[in-house]
Amino acid sequence: MSLQLLLTIAGMVVVTYGIRLSFLVFGHKLSFPAWLSRALHYVPAAVLTALIVPMALAPQGAIDLSPGNAYLPGTLAAAAVAFFSRHTLAAIISGFVVYGLWRWLS
């Protein structure tokens, strides 16, 4: 477990620092393709949604749309508040309140 974690972090450091160094240190040998900068624009939304959807719709592995799944209303509440207010922290707290109430009531 410990060695695995050490390798995980070491790899993440190499990858992240490498990306950050790319142009600042080796800039004269590189060029940034336009299609890539376009594609990068969609990475955060794609990756985060890919993480959210299975956790919200199938927290135990199987798709669960029953009232017993508090993740779904909680996630929807957080998303709705963020969508309309753009206030990240308020959205997280609202999501938590709905999630907590839902679990408590059901």
Binding site: P44, A45, I52, A56, G74, A79, T88, L89, A91, F96
Partner: peptide, 8 residues
């Protein structure tokens, strides 16, 4: 989940 949803 809530944090990611609030960002996206």
């Amino acid at each position: 989940v809530a944090t990611f949803a609030a960002i996206v």
